[in-house]
Amino acid sequence: MTADLLFLLVLVELFRLLIIYLQEQRVSIGVAVEVCIASVLREVIVRGVLEAPWVQILSTGAFLLVLGVLLVVRVWLPPTFEGIDPERRMASRKRNLSDHESVSQPLEVNRF
């Protein structure tokens, strides 16, 4: 029963990640890391710590440590897409290039 509850928790976190993505058009690093932590801990609980080899427990602990560091470090990361509209930037770059080309090359007139 514990495995089913933990699996339900992972699904709820994934659904939360999907809602954030659909609303804000970005993936939340914090929620993604929380989903990873919950799923790893679920697997450890389901399989049992005493039955797993020591190398697997050591690597799982290292993985959880890295995820924890990422969860702490994400606080200092600047928001990536705040105020950035890539389509507008590409359109203005294209417009600037076309304006520059039109100024540098004179127009040709077809005479009949």
Rank of each mutant, 00 (worst) to 15 (best):
V12S: 14
E13P: 03
E13V: 12
E13F: 15
L14D: 13
L14Y: 08
L17R: 00
L18N: 10
I19E: 05
I19K: 04
I19V: 12
I19M: 14
Y21R: 03
Y21W: 09
Y21H: 05
Q23F: 07
Q23N: 11
E24P: 10
Q25V: 13
R26N: 13
R26F: 12
V27P: 15
V27M: 10
S28E: 08
I29N: 14
I29T: 11
V31Q: 00
V33P: 09
E34T: 11
E34W: 11
V35G: 14
I37D: 08
A38H: 05
A38C: 04
V40Q: 05
V40L: 00
L41G: 04
V44I: 05
V44E: 11
I45P: 04
V46F: 13
R47T: 08
G48D: 09
G48R: 06
G48P: 15
G48F: 02
G48I: 06
V49H: 13
L50T: 11
L50W: 07
L50H: 07
E51C: 05
E51S: 06
P53W: 00
P53S: 06
W54P: 12
V55T: 01
V55K: 01
V55D: 12
Q56T: 02
I57G: 05
I57Q: 03
L58Y: 05
T60A: 13
G61N: 05
G61S: 05
G61I: 11
A62P: 08
A62V: 10
A62F: 10
A62E: 08
F63V: 09
L64A: 08
L64Q: 09
L64E: 10
L64T: 02
L64W: 13
L65D: 08
G68C: 08
L70R: 06
L70I: 02
V72Q: 06
V72L: 04
R74P: 12
R74W: 03
V75M: 06
V75C: 06
V75S: 03
W76I: 06
W76N: 00
W76M: 15
L77V: 02
P78M: 03
P78L: 00
P79V: 08
P79L: 01
T80W: 14
F81W: 11
E82D: 12
G83H: 09
G83R: 07
I84P: 07
D85P: 08
P86F: 02
P86M: 00
P86Q: 00
E87M: 01
E87F: 01
R89Y: 02
R89K: 02
M90G: 01
M90L: 01
S92M: 02
R93W: 02
R93Y: 01
K94Q: 02
K94M: 04
R95W: 11
R95K: 10
N96M: 04
N96T: 00
